[in-house]
């Protein structure tokens, strides 16, 4: 049974291990800085619920969810000839109900909301981007609030003026934290789509078959 859900299980475990590692390393960095400034250190549990840790986690979450949100939505209308990540050129757009197996074209095994038609089918047909987009917005909002608190705490440690939340979300600190994540995510996902035109990974669902032609588009095992 675990083999059937291996991808979710493996990445879920790796995520928790990496998050714990980040927490331990971040806790050490935070307390070292506090000691060097003659300030109070935190316990590990206090660090886990601190704005500092939350800002570090949320700034990465928002960029990852934005990356996949953009990729999911952009690949509705954009194609890349030869990429296994792309639809066939000519299939751009939301496609017909017949191709998408919705409404009257739904099969017996289709999800209930794919069969019903109307707003339910409209929403279900965009549910992936709606959920990914909601998580992106919430995590970016959370980054802005936690980052604001962390930034103002550092301002006060240096005897400087704190800023308001609108002041923070228009500050260089907020956009530096945000854009350094966005650029790397966009590079990684874009380069994977292009590399996969010419490069292969035998057995991977993200790759074309090793023997597929370079201009074969959307072919995955």
């Amino acid at each position: 049974m675990p083999r059937d859900i291996g991808i979710g299980l493996a990445f879920g475990i790796l995520f928790l291990v990496a998050l714990l590692g980040q927490a331990i390393a971040g806790f050490d960095v935070y307390n070292n800085e506090q000691v060097s400034q003659g300030l109070q250190t935190m316990t590990f549990v206090q660090y886990l619920v601190s704005a500092s840790f939350m800002a570090d986690v949320m700034e990465n979450w928002q960029s990852e969810y934005l990356q996949f949100l953009l990729y999911i939505v952009a690949t509705v209308w954009l194609v890349h000839r030869g990429s296994p990540e792309s639809k066939q050129p000519g299939d751009e757009g939301r496609m017909s109900d017949a191709k998408q197996l919705v409404g009257a074209h739904a099969k017996r095994t289709s999800p209930a909301w794919a069969k019903t038609g109307g707003w339910r089918t409209w929403v279900y047909g965009r549910s992936l981007s709606l959920v990914m987009g909601t998580i992106f917005v919430l995590s970016w909002l959370s980054q802005s609030i936690a980052g604001w608190s962390t930034y103002d705490a550092s301002q006060l440690r240096a005897y400087e003026h704190p800023v308001s939340w609108p002041g923070y979300v228009t500050s260089a600190d907020f956009w530096s934290r945000t854009l350094q994540n966005w650029q790397s995510e966009l590079l990684a996902v874009g380069s994977m789509a292009v590399f996969a035109v010419y490069l292969r990974e035998r057995g991977s669902s993200e790759s074309k078959l090793v023997g597929s032609a370079h201009d074969a588009t959307g072919e995955t095992p």
Binding site: M54, L138, S142, Q143, I145, W148, S149, T150, A153
Partner: peptide, 10 residues
Amino acid sequence: AGLLLLGGCG
């Protein structure tokens, strides 16, 4: 969603 919103409040 609750964690994300609560976590931001410092």
